[in-house]
Amino acid sequence: MEEKLSKEEVLHVAHLARIKVSDEEIEKYRIQLKELLNEVDKINEVVGYDEEMMITPIKDEALLHSDEVEDQISFEEVRSNIPHTSGSFIEVPKVVQHE
């Protein structure tokens, strides 16, 4: 088994997770993430399992909500938690391209 991830692999997962990593951290993660990945690879040892998949332990059907307006909050209630607002809008650095 490989001992370390490549630098590129670390940067790739960091990008997926939108977490910036410093050069120092890259070195650390190359080892730590690989350790975790080797661990989860143990799933490959399992064979002969049933195809049926569990999505939630809840077996009942979902309760449906009638189409009625309730529980609305005003923007003022949540404003203080928002890092940047402008009027009744939430402000972010300019959005350039759509994912």
């Binding site: 960091a14 939108r18 977490i19 910036k20 949540v78 938690n81 928002i82 890092p83 940047h84 939430i90 972010v92 650095p93 300019k94 959005v95 350039v96």
Partner: peptide, 19 residues
């Protein structure tokens, strides 16, 4: 860092704000 929670000061762009 957009609707609540920690956000860095003066991000240089959106990606920077996230990351």
């Amino acid at each position: 860092g957009i609707r609540y929670g920690y956000a860095v000061e003066d991000p240089k762009d959106l990606e920077d704000l996230y990351c």
